[in-house]
Structure formats: structure tokens, C-alpha cells
Simulated assay, not measured.
Amino acid sequence: MRSAKKVPNSTDRQAAQTKNIAFFDFDGTITNRDSFIDFIIFYHGKWVAYLGLLRLLPFLLAYKVKLIPNWRAKEKVLTYFFEGEPTATFQQGCDQYATERIPPITRVGALQALQKHHDLGNDIYLVSASPENWLSAWCQQKGIKLIASRLEVIDDKLTGKLRGNNCYGAEKVARIHQEIDLSDYEGVYAYGDSSGDREMLRLADYAYYRPFR
């Protein structure tokens, strides 16, 4: 993985007239835990969540030892917990999670970095493998644009499947290029904490791996 081109106060020294862009991973970078499992616990309660995860353990272990890909394991979990859930009910729970739960699990250093980029007038994107549903309200509140995984909906109900590719690894870079012309920017910053962020970090001029721990 590309090491960070980090020097003291490098962000502060960016010239005011230049236009920069910053990409932040969410789970483990901005937050101190994975929001996917945290959301399931918040939405269904601990007992339902833990029982379900126990039943899904063979699939989760298969993912850990790389027998099945990330997206397939995610769809197994989504299908178990949310297949047939009305989208209005689900989104209400997502917005409640964004308001009540995300603030206590965010890292202080990450919020400071977000604010610094805001103060410099940089464009800021959250790029996450988590579904956009429980990230959108928080991003709107923070003035951050969002690129994230999408959930399939049929007849106003969740199917438990992803709509399109899981926004993970190389897909993060593909989605960035679909939505943004990076040649419009003087500098590209990226913040991540896992192998799923490797390609996004390589895209950046200033790459920061696990910077807020």
C-alpha cells in the first residue's frame, strides 16, 4: 500500500486558490467500529441480531477465510435480516440510526479532519461499502457528498440484494471515476483503514492509512 505523503500541517498549507478533493472511508476510519453490524443491532435489538449472526456464522467464517467474496457474505446477512422489509420503515430506522447512533461512534480526529477540509473549501466525499441508507442523513448534516453501496428494492420492499456492485476495493475507485473528473482538482486526499480502501488510497496524492487511531 502506498505510504502517506504526509508532512506537518500539509493540509493547512494548501493555497486558498487551489481546489482539492478529499475521500473518506466510513467504517473504521470515521467510526470506531463497523456500522453494518452496529446498525443491525440498533434496528433489530441485541437478541435478534446475535441469534441471526450465530445462524449466519458459517457464511461469515467462509468470508473470513476467503471462500466467498465480500459482496456475497453481505447479501446473505442483508437477506436474513431485511428481506421483505418495507423501504419506508427501513429508511425511518436508518435516519434514526444516523441521528442517534453515528455521533457517539465517530472518531474525534476524523471530525477534525473533515472540518479542516470544509474550512479550506475542499470537496468532501464519503466513499463506503455500507449501504447509503443509513449514511445519507449524516452526510447531509455534515455537508458531505456520498458514494456508497445501494440496496435493491422491488415493490417498495428490500430484497436483501445489492443494486449494482458492492462499493468496496476497486469498486470505490470505479464509482469515484463515474461521478467525478479528478482532473478538475489540484490535490486528491484519501483516508482509509483496511484492505478495502487500498485502491482508493493509491488514487490519492495524499494517502492516510488509519490516521485517527
Score class of each variant (00 low, 15 high):
residue 5 K to G: 10
residue 8 P to R: 14
residue 16 A to C: 07
residue 20 N to S: 13
residue 20 N to P: 05
residue 22 A to G: 00
residue 23 F to T: 02
residue 31 T to N: 07
residue 32 N to C: 11
residue 34 D to Q: 14
residue 35 S to P: 09
residue 40 I to A: 05
residue 41 I to P: 03
residue 41 I to A: 10
residue 45 G to T: 08
residue 57 L to R: 03
residue 62 A to L: 12
residue 64 K to D: 01
residue 70 N to Q: 12
residue 75 E to I: 05
residue 89 T to S: 14
residue 91 Q to W: 11
residue 95 D to S: 13
residue 97 Y to C: 10
residue 98 A to R: 05
residue 99 T to V: 09
residue 102 I to E: 06
residue 102 I to M: 08
residue 105 I to L: 03
residue 105 I to K: 08
residue 106 T to H: 00
residue 108 V to A: 11
residue 113 A to N: 03
residue 123 D to Q: 07
residue 123 D to I: 05
residue 125 Y to P: 00
residue 127 V to Y: 06
residue 129 A to L: 02
residue 131 P to L: 06
residue 131 P to M: 09
residue 132 E to N: 07
residue 135 L to Y: 05
residue 138 W to F: 05
residue 139 C to L: 02
residue 140 Q to G: 12
residue 144 I to K: 10
residue 149 S to Q: 06
residue 151 L to I: 07
residue 157 K to I: 13
residue 159 T to C: 08
residue 169 G to S: 07
residue 176 I to G: 01
residue 180 I to E: 00
residue 181 D to A: 11
residue 184 D to P: 00
residue 189 Y to N: 05
residue 190 A to W: 10
residue 192 G to Y: 02
residue 193 D to I: 07
residue 195 S to L: 14
residue 201 L to V: 02
residue 201 L to N: 04
residue 201 L to K: 07
residue 207 A to S: 07
residue 210 R to H: 11
